[in-house]
């Protein structure tokens, strides 16, 4: 029987400092996987002006390069397109800024592989939140309320970029927002197409430079109101 295919999509913009480390950890974790999956790592360089492309290529990932910066949503969809070309059965998205722990990959993808959900969302609130700054916690709560009001999904960490999708979700979801607002689109699409969502606990690292800001949160809400509805 042919092995199932798992692709990890990592969109990144000017992440030259961190992308090498992220990919190294990811390759190491995927090599040890006991799921008997054929794996691919797709890095989408979203028009970076630094050496992100070179470093990712050197690390051995499949690297796609946007000639100009189009936003994390657009880069993720480009990664999805490539994953579809590779006949992926499951796709994971994670951030390029080394915020997520590569070891959590299997925790995130397992419910999708087992058929418990069409899409899983990592939740920093179900895991260890001690390292998360207070203002980020407040911002997340506000965005959780936004998602609950607009899309009816009661999640604890709706803006987390560490997610897994099965092929059905990948084929049916239609992401329209190029910038960060795409992160909330998954809830609208899940509602429209009756897809099952599930949250899984993950760990996150913060150093003050990573993650979304309060302003990003406002932008996400605005983009979804103007574009998503």
């Amino acid at each position: 029987m042919a092995k199932k295919v798992l692709s990890v999509v990592i969109p990144g913009y000017n992440e030259g400092e961190r992308i090498g480390k992220v990919l190294k950890k990811l390759f190491s974790v995927l090599e040890k996987n006991s799921l008997e999956l054929k794996t691919f790592i797709i890095m989408v360089d979203d028009g970076s002006t630094d050496n992100t492309f070179k470093i990712a290529k050197k690390a051995g990932a499949i690297v796609l390069h946007h000639p100009i910066n189009r936003g994390v949503g657009a880069a993720t969809v480009t990664g999805f397109e490539k994953a579809k070309m590779l006949d992926s059965d499951f796709v994971i998205t994670m951030d390029a800024d080394d915020q997520h722990e590569a070891k959590d990959i299997f925790a995130v993808v397992n419910p999708v592989i087992c058929g418990e959900a069409d899409c899983t969302i990592g939740s920093r609130f179900l895991g260890n939140t001690k390292t998360m700054p207070l203002f980020k916690k407040i911002g997340n709560i506000l965005l959780n309320i936004f998602v609950l009001v607009f899309y009816g999904w009661r999640g604890t960490d709706t803006m987390c970029g560490f997610r897994a999708f099965n092929r059905k979700a990948l084929d049916t979801m239609n992401f329209r927002i190029d910038r960060y607002g795409y992160i909330a689109e998954v809830y609208r699409e899940a509602k429209i197409h009756n897809l099952v969502l599930k949250e899984v606990p993950i760990e996150t690292r913060y150093d003050g430079k990573r993650g979304t800001t309060f302003l990003d949160g406002v932008k996400i809400a605005l983009e979804n109101v103007t574009r998503g509805a």
Partner: peptide, 15 residues
């Protein structure tokens, strides 16, 4: 949107 589609096409074809 058209610029994004073009950027995506270029990225996939180049790869």
């Amino acid at each position: 949107s058209s610029i994004t589609v073009l950027a995506r096409k270029t990225a996939l074809e180049k790869e």
